[in-house]
Each structure stands twice: as structure tokens, then as C-alpha cells.
Amino acid sequence: MSKTSRKKSSKTPSASPTVKKKALKTRASVQTKSARTQRTTASKSSATISKTASHGAASKQLNSSKSAAAAKATLTEGQKAPAFRLPRDGGSVATLSEYAGQKLVLFFYPRADTPGCTREAIDFTRLAQDFKAAGTAVLGISADSLKAQEKFRDKHSLGVPLISDEAHEMLEAYGAWGEKSMYGKSFLGILRTTVLVGSDGKVARIWRNVRVDGHADQVLEAARSL
């Protein structure tokens, strides 16, 4: 065998241009899919945290001592119930004065048509006639818009008036607006709270950090005992 032949046979065959092109294409495709998956995962995670923490119009980022101070619950049993005048479903206005001389239940819920809030509103609706027999009116309050409240009412055939407090004035006055925490972030939002006002216009009972199951029945018993 000649020297020229030995040199040619000792060289490692190189990949053809076609094979190289396919390999590069495959590698680029894998990298693109990986990057797309990472972006999608990050986007979904961010959206979930944002949606849950914000509670729509019912919450905002806690970023000042002034906001934290405004959220502190100052209402106590025995105090005169704070006056309010806010829009309610149906287009009318709800005021504290129209319930003068009778007992009144105010249940504050975080967001219309969410699971816990729906069960709570349905329970108060179920007991509406019993509350009436006990001389007690019932109102539901959240920061949802009037349109959202009416949609909530119609979807679940709710039989209690729903008040819209988008400016959080009544929520703060009754101590139902405060600091919450989720996914390591602090924010201001609606604290599930119920207030029972006596026929004398004073706060008779306050339930904070309410657990929905059986709550409406407990409030009914308290109203009957006044």
C-alpha cells in the first residue's frame, strides 16, 4: 500500500453536510421548546399569584404604614354601629338608618361567586325567613361592583340584599378590611367578618376570621337571643 493510500485510510470520515444540518436543526428545536416551556411556566405561576393575591377589586398591595393603619380593626362590641350609605343590588341605596329599631346582620365577604362566599350567601338566604321572624335584617357586603353583585345574586338565587363598597369605606369602618398574606406577600383585602347590630343601634356581636360552615346558623341563634 502506498503512503498516499495509508494517509487517506487513516482519516476519520466526517459527517456529511446533510447530517450536520439535521443535527443543528434538532438541537435548535429542543432549545426553543425548552425556552418556551420555561416562559409558559413562569407566566402561569406569576398569573396565579397575582390573581389570588389581588382578589380583583377587593385587595391591593400593602406598601405603606398609612394603609396598614387604616386596615386595623377598631370596632368593638358595645359601640354604636358606624353609619353607611352605599349602592345595593337592584339599583337602590342601603343605609343604616333605614334599619333603625330592628336588629341587623352585616356579613362581609371577600369576593362574589367564589366557593366560600357562595356557600355563606346561600346559607344566609336559606335562613332569611328565620331571621325575619327574629326581627333581624341581613345584608351582604363586599368590594365587588354592583354589576358583579347582581350577577352573583341571579346565578345563585340569593334572597339577601348585596351592598357594593368599592371604596372600602364601610369595610374599614367595620374592621373588615385588613392585612392578609399569601405566597409570602402581604396585601390589604377583605377579612371575612360578620357584625350583629342590636335594635338599639349598637354592635352586639362581632365574628372575625369567619369559618363558613355552620356560621349563618350561629348568627341566627345570637340574633334570637337579643
Rank of each mutant, 00 (worst) to 15 (best):
P13D: 12
A15H: 13
S16D: 04
V19D: 08
K21V: 04
K21F: 10
A23K: 13
T26C: 02
A28P: 13
S29W: 07
Q31E: 14
Q31K: 12
T32F: 08
K33Y: 11
S34D: 12
T40L: 12
T40H: 14
T40K: 15
S43F: 14
K44M: 15
S45L: 09
S46A: 14
K51R: 06
T52I: 02
H55V: 00
H55T: 03
A57L: 03
A58M: 01
K60P: 10
K60S: 14
Q61A: 14
A68K: 07
K72S: 09
T76C: 14
T76F: 09
E77H: 06
K80N: 13
K80Q: 15
P82T: 01
A83F: 15
F84P: 06
F84E: 07
R85G: 13
P87M: 01
G90T: 04
S92E: 10
Y99F: 14
A100R: 09
G101C: 03
Q102D: 03
L106V: 11
F107Q: 02
F108I: 01
F108S: 05
F108Q: 00
F108M: 00
P110L: 05
G116Y: 01
E120N: 00
E120R: 01
E120F: 05
A121R: 00
I122E: 11
I122T: 07
D123K: 05
D123N: 08
D123C: 06
R126T: 14
F131Y: 10
F131M: 02
A133D: 15
